[in-house]
């Protein structure tokens, strides 16, 4: 695909997510299911940065975001294949016929929600990998919240879909792992077979941090029931649900703007422009890495550690324990790669 077509598609995507437009279907070769190499016992977490992500302004440059995402995906998937195009990475992940949900996080409004340019960049590559635009749904819990974060709702037609669970409802039946039962978003269960988790990187007053694993609170009808005890073991339990676990293929964490204190609501004075992405197929390793990023920033700002504040994110270790095995949190089992 030429750069020009790519740019033009991006424009269409922007209209889809911020306005309204129809996209044509990309007819690309079937994708391989991407996975981390079976031989590796380490989980890879790519941290990709671009100090010039915003150019000289304050908003993220869409072209640079696409390039940053490409770099991150290549670093994650194309090891040993440095000559491959960024698209090869996506083709390892998805293929024609897949219905892909991007679970964004829009609780923080325009201040700190999943970045629109990042979402557009992912949608762009998904279509190039053969996913019909109408088979991509960008979603969160609440449509109004999504609009407040800058997303333009879109339902129906041959375009990327964008709406909240309030438009699709929750399943009638309960799904349960552990002590709490929940009704799952029908967007997850009925609209998608692949989940791409697109969280933000934030401090959280109860859980310690909120990144990939906690972003799944937006999938259920009763997240308030999962907050006691620093959300432990509730976050891990929730991610054990087969409907979530079997679908989650990738986490692309938006750390363009991040928060080291005062979360989860947006507090400008406690946020910083990290201008980076964290990408992994292991949500536990990604959360673990994100937590350390937040701790480094807290130290830089002269704040106590989360442990010292008695709100270390214990749920991360629970997610990695022998009961859950959702991924690795032991640093020796995580390979952090600069993308």
């Amino acid at each position: 695909m030429t750069a020009m077509r790519s740019a033009s598609r991006r424009e269409f995507l922007r209209q889809c997510l911020t306005g309204a437009a129809a996209l044509s279907t990309s007819q690309l070769a079937p994708a391989q299911q991407a996975a981390q190499t079976a031989k590796s016992t380490k989980s890879r977490v790519v941290v990709a940065r671009d100090p010039m992500l915003r150019g000289t302004g304050s908003t993220v440059d869409a072209g640079r975001m696409q390039a940053l995402l490409d770099r991150a995906m290549q670093a994650l998937f194309n090891r040993g294949h440095s000559g491959e195009s960024p698209l090869a990475a996506w083709r390892r992940l998805v293929g024609p016929g897949d219905r892909v949900g991007l679970k964004v996080n829009t609780l923080g409004g325009r201040g700190i929600s999943s970045n629109l340019s990042l979402v557009e960049a992912i949608c762009e590559r998904l279509q190039q990998a053969g996913i019909k635009p109408g088979d991509i749904v960008v979603w969160d819990r609440d449509s109004d919240e999504m609009e407040r974060a800058g997303f333009k709702l879109a339902t129906g037609g041959d375009r990327v879909q964008c709406f909240g669970t309030d438009r699709a409802d929750y399943e009638e039946d309960l799904s349960a792992y552990g002590s709490v039962g929940s009704r799952l978003s029908r967007i997850l269960t009925r609209y998608t077979n692949v989940l791409i988790n697109v969280p933000v990187l934030k401090d959280h007053d109860g859980a310690g941090v909120t990144i990939a694993l906690k972003n799944m609170y937006g999938v259920i009808h009763n997240p308030n029931k999962y907050h006691p005890n620093g959300c432990d073991p509730y976050i891990a339990d929730l991610n054990m649900l087969p409907e979530i676990r079997s679908r989650m293929k990738l986490v692309v964490c938006d750390a363009t703007t991040a928060m080291y204190e005062g979360g989860p609501g947006f507090k400008p004075k406690h946020s910083w422009k990290a201008d980076s992405l964290l990408v992994s197929q292991d949500p536990v390793a990604l959360d673990s890495t994100g937590w350390q990023t937040i701790e480094r920033k807290r130290a830089e700002m002269g704040l106590k550690t989360l442990e010292a504040e008695k709100r270390a994110p214990r749920y991360i270790a629970t997610a990695a324990d022998s009961e859950h095995r959702l991924g690795h949190c032991d640093p020796s089992r995580i390979a952090v790669v600069e993308g």
């Binding site: 923080g108 959280h204 007053d205 109860g206 308030n224 029931k225 907050h227 006691p228 989860p264 609501g265």
Partner: peptide, 23 residues
């Protein structure tokens, strides 16, 4: 901008934009 709910013994401490356990 946090609050402590004094309605029930949970005494939820709730951050901005968050809800208590009761939802």
């Amino acid at each position: 901008r946090k609050i402590r709910c004094k309605l029930c013994p949970r005494e939820c401490i709730v951050g901005d934009k968050e809800r208590g356990y009761c939802g």
